[in-house]
Design a protein around this nucleic acid. Structure first.
Lengths: 343, 343
DNA sequence: CTGTTAGCGCATTCAC
DNA sequence: GTGAATGCGCTAACAG
């Protein structure tokens, strides 16, 4: 295998007997030289195997790379397992691909956006990254930032009205003042544990979608004048069946057994439905269950899940379009209640 | 909002009254200066808000970036929808994340690897990219390349013995010399159409996994001395239920109706099972079906699918490890027959 | 241990 | 239209 010469713009210019600028212009600024000259040069480059200016050097010089980093809430593996996150990524990538912008996947567990910040034109950030330091880094970066399901002041964002959605679904789930409600929360706490939540953190975390949803539930609970016992709120650290199952079992085996389960994700609700069926209890007669997200699987449970449907793919599309258009807007995307048979 | 100064190594050096090299060394080569000096400098940098050398410039200078491009067979959206591809990506990302290497997703529909080649340390290429030009570009790049389910001469690769696997599963599916076999192929043709295949292309395409599997099927067919009619091979351009359904219907409505379906992916086989059930036919009595891949859904069809199980996630792990270790090996990963009730 | 120098590969002035 | 010069931000080699 003969090692082929590695061309640079400079060496190409010398080879062709023209100046560097001319070669550069041939690739970047057609108006700066005659058509014929340009075509000759491009043809020669093709022939010798020079496929154009080095993009890394170009990026250093021009200050942009045509790459955007998608900051995920957690690991890349987790994103793949989570249908909601996958749908978002799908939406983002469809827009970027059309715009010929490349996508770098960035784990929410990473230490520092610096590892990629200088290579990318900016960040699309989906949900609050597990490593909270990234938030501060994103807040202070000079690069473009669009967030989704999560806000950083003065940055463009897309999301839904989580509080209102939670309020509406809770109103549907709760039918009587005597209902005994349990809330299966998703990432209510910063820590990675599945447990009951007695005290809620005060800080930034209050703005997480989990807390927005919790406020919605609570508002419905107050409106309907029902009582929420102090030991009825659980934290689940990630939206996974097996993780959710732990909290589900705790809730279902507590005495008295709650008869309304407000779940902050469909995956949690589906875990609950499975467990309730396994226990031989009837949904919705013995227990009512509502979810959040509207994933496909929610249509196929027994009974189908009543849930908040949000269009994650569209959210991704919107976020990517905001990025491309350098928007600084914040929008709320519509959601709707999807009626199954679980209430 | 006060615009904070954007520091460069040079401006920081001037500010601190030391030379560029000293600042650079403080970040990159601790052995080149006293501990105290280093700590002082790093602390000052922290204070003024300089978070270290620009990675893009660093990469231009050093020649590596700690980013690897994962070249997908098709769009990113398609990868997300395909459980086999997702599992592969999951495997790759788990290894890269552990090694603190960043992942750029690169669509197999892209025009040219140039768009990212100068930013990345190399490519992991999963399956033959839809845009065949990328293959040639990958062949001639000077960057590191590892391929999976697909080969480029002289590059490291991981895969399974597709021909042998296809041979074994076909031997299980075929039970009599009188069996009437149909082959539902995945990407047997380069073109994006769902249709019968009468002639097979000769060129490079012969080395695709589809053709390896076809050879396996054919070897079993010859071994068992059964006859494969000339109009019994279909091409399906992508492993999707709806796309597969078209070919499935063509096959099932042809006269005489085949009684053995050799499917090159589980998704295709599952489409077939669904359709056969809908037609009121019995599996395996009326028709036998086998798949390829061993995805989770194959366990839950009615009846469960008999298929070739391959560990895609492990394949991803292996590919990423090859990349990290600069391996130039080619390995075949074991597969096994997963017995369901469909034969 | 420190500072100076010369590029990494390129794009943009500015004269001609 | 063209070519030389400057610098994007950095690091490695070298001299001190």
């Amino acid at each position: 295998m003969t090692d082929r010469k590695v061309w640079t713009l400079k060496s190409v210019a010398k080879e062709l007997g023209v100046s560097n600028a001319t070669v550069s212009n041939a690739f970047n600024r057609p108006d700066q030289l005659s058509k014929k000259r340009r075509e000759d040069i491009l043809e020669s480059c093709e022939k010798i195997g020079y496929s154009g200016p080095n993009k890394a050097a170009q990026s250093l010089r021009k200050g942009h790379s045509n790459i955007v980093a998608l900051v995920l809430p957690d690991s890349i593996e987790y994103m793949i397992a989570d249908p909601v996150a996958s749908a978002f990524v799908k939406g983002v990538s469809s827009v970027l691909e059309k715009s010929k912008v490349n996508l770098l996947l960035f784990s929410g567990n990473s230490d520092h956006i610096n590892a990629v910040a200088d290579f990318v034109d900016g960040f699309i950030c989906y949900g609050s990254p597990r490593n909270a330091q990234l938030i501060e880094q994103l807040r202070t970066t000079t690069k473009k930032v669009v967030t989704a399901d999560f806000d950083i002041d003065r940055k463009a964002s897309v999301g839904i009205d989580n509080e209102q959605a939670a309020y509406e679904i809770a109103k549907i789930a709760i039918k009587s003042k005597d209902d005994d409600i349990a809330i299966l929360g998703l990432r209510l706490l910063e820590s990675n544990v599945t447990c009951r939540v007695y005290d809620l953190p005060n800080a930034d975390f209050q703005f997480s979608i989990a807390h927005q949803r919790l406020r919605g539930y609570n508002r419905a609970i107050e409106d309907l004048e029902v009582n929420l016992r102090i030991d009825r709120v659980w934290n689940i650290p990630e939206s996974k069946l097996l993780t959710a199952l732990i909290a589900v079992r705790e809730a279902l085996t507590s005495t008295p057994r709650p008869n309304v389960l407000l779940c902050m994700s469909d995956l949690i609700a589906l875990a609950a439905i499975k467990e309730i069926n396994a226990m031989g209890l009837k949904i919705p007669d013995d227990i009512r269950v509502v979810g959040f997200d509207g994933i496909d699987e929610a249509l196929h449970s027994n009974p189908p899940l009543t849930t908040v449907h949000q269009n994650s793919e569209k959210k991704g599309i919107q976020a990517a379009e905001f990025f491309i258009n350098r928007s600084t807007e914040s929008v709320l995307i519509p959601f709707h209640i999807q009626h199954g048979g679980s209430v």
